[in-house]
Amino acid sequence: MNLTKSTSADGTTLTIQIKGKFDFNLVQSFRQAYAQINANIVKVIVDLRETEYMDSSALGMLLNMKKTIESQVGTIEISNCQPQLRKILQISRFDKKFDIC
């Protein structure tokens, strides 16, 4: 499985971790990962530490997620990007829409 999700011990943070490539092949599973989000969740972390590749379809998926859950979740964070992926996010001005750290 290239996508795993886990909830923190205190139940307030949902982490979606993507392994390998983040592209349109994950459209369904990525949507499902945040589809029925628990009411206690105040923060969603998309953890890209093991993501090697992403393309514009991944950017589309991230934007869709933001649109769907931003009213419910306080913070959406994209974390642990490798330098080249961070650059892709910056070129696309995603640093204005997400907390990238």
Partner: peptide, 12 residues
């Protein structure tokens, strides 16, 4: 070292 960029170019 450039594989993420190469992927992006080819994928797009």
């Amino acid at each position: 070292d450039h594989r993420s960029n190469i992927f992006l170019l080819l994928s797009e």
